[in-house]
Design a protein around this nucleic acid. Structure first.
Lengths: 195, 195, 195, 195
DNA sequence: AATGAATGAGTTTTCATTCAT
DNA sequence: TATGAATGAAAACTCATTCAT
């Protein structure tokens, strides 16, 4: 098998296993067995267990990141609500199509060690900053309730995280994503926008 | 030292260490050193590492639980908003006064193994059910926007969790809790209550 | 067993094994089996394989060092030759009584890695410096042939090392040490002293 | 590249690496990278790591061996001292021009395993035997001090080895070889020859 | 009620060697 | 003649748990 293929295959297997069992309960032995490779082969592609996990975390952080587009105001732009809905449904869709991704981000990568926690926290902080910017913009335009944009952003982020957690991580359910997206959107809109 | 005292002392030390370093990075060696006891002594009081951690998780779940009072409607009761504020500020205060508690619940106990995840998830589900009941009640009374009470409850829970996470777990900051409580309350109220 | 005893016992066993088989061919498994202890017990007393080996090297370097006394000239002192003989026979006796010691210093600790090589080289350099000082003193007193004291010291050291190597390391023989000491002494004396 | 050339090239690279880092710290990966060949190619030319190292050791033992000519006494022969000087300077020159050679013989091949140790020891024993023969001859001729030729030979060998070790192996210095040769020669001559 | 020396199963990681192309 | 992806046995090290004192 060509190196890039092999590497990708191992990462696929690892993503699934780490998502299912978490970091510590996924052993190299499980991984190589599931991938159908020899022990040494794994270390041919990844320096160690941390490294492959770190790569997975970085990858999925990047994946989520591409789902988020800054809200643009101006002629010819979709409405703010439309743009928010776009961001939200892209994120939910991406995660729904790849649960291990959600499970790693919201569960497996949590509390492992300061480095991973920092990486994940940085990502969330970045996302919440982008949300806060949007809220601040809305404040200036007078379409957002007077509030602390930073705290509001944290709560919006938390609401989304929890929805993802409940529907994709903690359970195996398969909700109607359009409906959930609408609910989330309505909730957020009411929470921050002036009527 | 009397048995109950010793037991309590070990748990205090463990709560701090697990909160600081997480489950796997806290070793029995760290624990007994910090507690100033011999290795064997630890095992006189706790069957194993899981057990003490499990107890801590159960304890703090119970602690948080006592902070939450069902919303009561009727003559002589404080307003619904007042009752919500009470719940919220009791939770935030309790956690703010004991960060290890927050760190264990939101970080150390996450993704460890199916059993712990289930215990924690059950707790959150219970909390979100109580919130959902409140929302459903509000719906019946016509004071809450038409929405899916379950999804709304998840988002309210998520907003609170994230605030706690950002202010108590991910950083060492010390915000003005009254202000934060007000922000959260305003956000939740606007999100669900009809104007 | 009391910690110090256990530690000493493990070192004794390790000294023998490292002496017999060298560093790489002595595995922790061999060591703990020979010592009659469990794997973990070894790591209770030594951080790792390098550490115990390093301690052994340092110990024996110190042991040899105590055999060497600076040559003193003056009334009431034994003759220079007598003092040289004393140094020599103390070294040979010490090593003869403890072959693993010689085997570690002259064989097992050689070429392992830069750190060990440096430690051993430093020791030899120190010894050769002490010899060179003696030779330089003899030069000033006119009782030593004109020569480069540094080179002479290296050769004297080499002569002794090779004798030890041939009789204690490379073979299992048991020569007449008095005779060997005399031969070495005669050789060195002729090589450096004026007739 | 022609097979013999390739083989020679790999050996050149290996000699350098083994000399620099020793046996265990030189990995096949280092070797093939430095030689610019593929992993499999190495094994086309050498059965395994031991084999190439063994060949190098044998080669250099043979190389040194050709530097040593038996001392011949008779009309038309250079003086004994001249012949000794010849042997000595050929050895020192050869090693000085190829430090890896010295480093392998005096450091990398030491204490690896019984087989290599035996090979190297055999070589030294052979050299020391040739020296001992010369000394015995001198004894018969009355030009050598009464001494045990075997012990004397060991010490002469040791003196030379240590000079080589100090100047070529342990340090990167570049002494004046003529001077060193003279010092060594003077030392040996004084040590064994009658005035 | 406490001690702390000892245990050993379990896990990661290394690296010389092979073999299909 | 050369390649380089794959192998897997072997080795070091960890750490929760036990048990004799």
């Amino acid at each position: 098998m060509r190196p890039e293929e092999r590497r990708a295959q191992i990462k696929d297997v690892a993503r699934r296993l780490f998502g299912e069992r978490g970091y510590h309960r996924t052993q190299i032995s499980d991984l190589i067995e599931a991938a159908g490779i020899a022990r040494g082969t794994f270390y041919l592609y990844f320096r160690n267990k941390r490294e492959i996990f770190g790569e997975l975390v970085d990858d999925l952080v990047a994946t989520i990141d591409t789902c988020i587009r800054g809200i643009e105001v101006g002629d010819g732009q979709p409405s703010v609500g439309e743009q928010m809905r776009g961001n939200l449904s892209r994120i939910l869709e991406t995660l729904a199509q790849n649960r291990p991704l959600a499970r790693i981000l919201l569960r497996a990568a949590v509390g492992l060690d300061p480095d991973f926690d920092r990486r994940v926290d940085d990502f969330y902080r970045q996302v919440s900053n982008r949300i806060a910017e949007g809220v601040a913009l809305g404040l200036e335009m007078g379409i957002v309730h007077p509030c602390d944009p930073h705290v509001a952003a944290i709560m919006i982020l938390g609401a989304i995280k929890e929805v993802v957690y409940q529907y994709l991580v903690a359970t195996d359910g398969e909700p109607d994503w359009d409906e959930v997206t609408n609910e989330v959107l309505g909730y957020v809109v009411r929470a921050v926008l002036t009527p």
